[in-house]
Design a protein around this nucleic acid. Structure first.
Length: 366
DNA sequence: AAACGTGGCAACCGCGGCCAC
DNA sequence: CGTGGCCGCGGTTGCCACGTT
């Protein structure tokens, strides 16, 4: 039933590469190139390896100009801001960092960089040795005062991550308004438009503008609050009560991922709306929890009329923010907003849509 | 000092997408 | 337009070194 193997497993070596294999592969490719066919290459080069293994070894290790060792603050910054905007698309991120491979960056993010950002709020989940444990995610403190001004915070931090983290965590702790609510959101697939922005706020960002609906509860009429900026990867706002939040294994305790992937958006000042998204997670399972038969969209802001308690909330990792004027400018102002729905992953976003529900504008970054 | 836990990475593997036929 | 098969992505696993109990 399964897919045919890409090569003859019996006759193929697996595991770490020996220096001899390395030099064989290197010499062959330097002399003859890959010929555009990795499958045939190992045989031609006299290697008992699967073509994919050769490709990986070459791209991640043998290829010229591979950079190893410490990541600089600048690299940290780039990775962080790109992750904030496009999520875990490591190959794209790697393309911005000469000499780094996607694998390298992925590993670095998962083992170190993420912790730099998360450390104070909670220990990131460990998948090691199947010690999946439900992190007891505590909701953040519920401050009664608000109106913290983060006017001058840049979207892409110019400081090292350590200082970014400090700033944002203190902001975070102080900035909830007293009455914020958790709306349940889903998105509709119609009315999305494609374009590209060159805004200085979001240089070369790709974004998607579309409609947002709030399931079951009316959107507040205050139009200042009708914009929601979502940072994150493709599935960031998938509705998951139907299990369509894909790529998550429900039969494992790795469910925890979903609960960690909570977005927060909040704004305090009616006249000076700020939008902030917090996203924690390592793939496209977004803000849903998907586990309890509800419609789980834990996006925190003053969005709809429903006051709701904390439920499944883990709230970590501030990655970006802007204010309403920025949003407006992007939406109007002749900005082109680019990239539509991208493939099947995003399709799950658009389930559970009731066309009769209130729809509002949303920008969805990925 | 042995067993156990953890971090760091390299490598693996399934899948979606793309393209040639 | 199918369809078969390769490519590359990204989530996951395996392994080793080292720290801790």
């Amino acid at each position: 039933m399964g897919r045919a193997p890409c090569c003859d497993k019996a006759n193929v070596k697996k595991g770490p590469w020996s220096p001899e294999e390395d030099s064989k592969l290197k010499e062959y490719i330097e002399k003859k190139g890959t010929g555009g066919n990795w499958i045939a290459l190992p045989q031609k080069a006299g290697l008992k390896r699967c073509g994919k293994s050769c490709r990986l070894r070459w791209l991640n290790y043998l290829r010229p100009n591979i950079k190893h060792g410490e990541f600089s603050d600048e690299e940290d910054r780039i990775i962080c801001s790109l992750f904030a905007s496009i999520g875990s698309r490591w190959s794209i991120i790697a393309a911005q960092l000469p000499g780094r491979t996607d694998n390298d960056i992925k590993n670095y993010w998962n083992t170190k960089l993420k912790k730099k950002l998360m450390g104070m709020h909670m220990a990131p989940p460990s998948h090691h040795h199947h010690h999946h444990q439900r992190n007891s995610l505590k909701p953040p403190p519920f401050p009664s005062s608000s109106h913290h001004n983060y006017q001058n915070q840049p979207l892409i931090p110019s400081q090292p991550l350590s200082s970014l983290f400090k700033d944002l965590s203190s902001t975070y702790n102080r900035s909830f308004s007293s009455g914020f609510e958790i709306p349940h959101l889903s998105m509709t697939s119609n009315n999305f438009s494609n374009a590209t922005t060159n805004s200085s706020l979001f240089p070369t960002q790709e974004c998607l503008v579309g409609s947002m609906q709030v399931n079951n509860y009316p959107v507040k009429k205050n139009s200042n609050q009708n914009n929601l900026l979502m940072f994150g990867s493709e599935g960031s706002c998938s509705t998951s009560s139907d299990g369509s939040c894909n790529q998550i294994s429900y039969d494992r305790e790795s469910n925890i991922k979903q609960e960690e992937m909570v977005f927060q958006s909040f704004d305090q000042d009616q006249n000076n709306q700020r939008f902030m998204m917090l996203n924690y997670g390592n793939n496209n399972s977004g803000c849903s929890t998907g586990s309890a038969g509800h419609d789980h969209h834990h996006v925190i802001n003053q969005w709809c009329e429903r006051p709701d308690g904390f439920d499944h909330l883990g709230t970590e990792n501030t990655l970006g923010y802007c204010d309403l004027e920025d949003v407006k400018q992007l939406i109007s102002g002749g900005n082109n907003l680019n990239i539509g729905v991208n493939g099947s992953k995003s399709n799950s976003l658009f389930s559970n849509v009731d066309e009769n529900k209130t729809e509002e504008k949303v920008m969805y970054f990925y």
